[in-house]
Simulated assay, not measured.
Amino acid sequence: MSETIKVLCYKSKTLSNGEHPLMVCVCKDGKRKYQSLGISIKAEQWDFKSNLPKTKCPNRDRIILLINERINEIQKAALDKRIAGKNFTATTLIESTTNNTTNKTVGEYYMTYIQNLKKENRIRYAGMFEVSYSSFIKFNKHLDIPFSDIDATWLKRYELWMKEQNLSVSTISTRIRHLRAVFNLAIAEHVIKNDCYPFHSYKVSKLNKQTAKRAISKKEVLKIMQYQGETPMECLAIDVFVFSYLNAGINFIDIAKLKRSNIVESQLIYNREKTKKLINVPLQQKAMEIIAKYENDKSPYLFPILTPFHKTEIQIANRLHKVLAKINKHLKEIGKKLKLPIPLTTYVARHSYATVLKRAGVSTSIISESLGHSSEKITQVYLDSFDNSQINDAMKNLL
């Protein structure tokens, strides 16, 4: 008995957004097998007689294309089995054309990505992805959609929606890059095909070009160094900023985790938390004075940010988040007092380090002007490729 294959709007199930899933229905030998097509639709947009979306249905042509592709795929599998003389049922026919991972929705794969980060103890990074995930849910109501639903038009609408929320370009860029990371993993694991990748036409890099200035001049940095903090936390905020500026733009997390063992013969040597690259920079006199200021025999850390009490990754991540928020709050207040042109944060130190060296004529081969690139690995590769004497000479321009 020949099989029948069609796609139905499954009204028996209503999703949280009021739509109904489209289901592939294979009927053979009086038995039916249903499988989600990965698309949902409103009942009023579906023609239940022809089993096709109505003329006014959004994305009608794309939906019809996906329906035809899936039906043709199953029909071809049935034909191949007949030619090979193999028996099959409705269930085995669908299973033979299904890779269990290919039907994962964007939401499911996104959550898998977050769980993988947590298993790797990258708690803070996972938390950033969770924030982005919540933003996508707020925008689209749900992510129970196939990867093919997210195209350049979808991304542009999300970008405009984010701008309407008065969020910064850097925040928009970060969240879209998180989604791109999920797409990249899905392609690497052959969950989706490369032609589903929307970032060929939608370039996240264009957002980076719109990012506001994040660097200040050497004169302005010196004003921060000369500022006298009025409270211990304000003093710590200044010291963290200055230490970052003097040490190749080392970021806050890496500063917090520095230990005495990271100082070797007046050199600061550590592996970046984010890229795992080995960084080796000379410790200038001012940086050594800052370290000496916080020397504490009861703690292995150079700065009073983490303590031996913070043992688990979650404890460390929570502590870093809390202290960084306080430091940036104080830095912004200091920036206002000093009438600096931009809001002051720890990240400004990183950009300022690169910009000051660039303006001093230091070769871009040694230090990149834009440490806020979509990939900071490029900058670290350049730093790693030069010997210490070249970096030492370059960093004399910082003060």
Rank of each mutant, 00 (worst) to 15 (best):
V240S: 02
I123H: 11
A360P: 01
V221L: 00
K138E: 14
Y301H: 12
M162T: 01
K104Y: 02
K358N: 08
K223Y: 08
N121M: 10
V182K: 02
K104H: 01
V221E: 04
I334V: 13
N72I: 02
A43M: 04
I342G: 12
L79E: 04
K332W: 10
L117W: 11
I172E: 08
E220H: 04
A256S: 11
S36D: 09
M225H: 01
S36K: 02
E73R: 08
L117R: 06
Y294V: 11
R177W: 10
D151C: 05
V26C: 08
N397W: 14
H351N: 04
L8W: 13
I5D: 10
L357I: 07
L79H: 05
A126L: 04
R180H: 02
I224F: 05
L167F: 03
H190K: 13
D239I: 00
L37Q: 14
G107F: 11
S363V: 07
I342E: 14
K339T: 09
I342H: 15
D149Y: 06
Y158E: 06
F88L: 07
F309S: 12
T171V: 11
S170A: 07
N103I: 09
K276V: 03
P343Y: 14
R359K: 14
K213R: 10
E3R: 12
A90S: 12
Q267N: 03
I327F: 15
S363D: 13
K276A: 03
L79Y: 08
C9Y: 12
D144R: 02
L93H: 03
K329Y: 13
H200G: 04
H142A: 04
S205T: 14
K223E: 10
P232S: 00
W46C: 00
P343H: 11
I83R: 06
I94K: 07
K11A: 13
K104S: 07
S16V: 04
F243V: 00
Y382D: 09
P198V: 09
D387R: 12
T14R: 14
G30E: 09
A360L: 02
C57W: 13
G249A: 01
M128E: 12
K332H: 13
P341Q: 12
Q315M: 15
M288Q: 10
Q75L: 07
T171K: 03
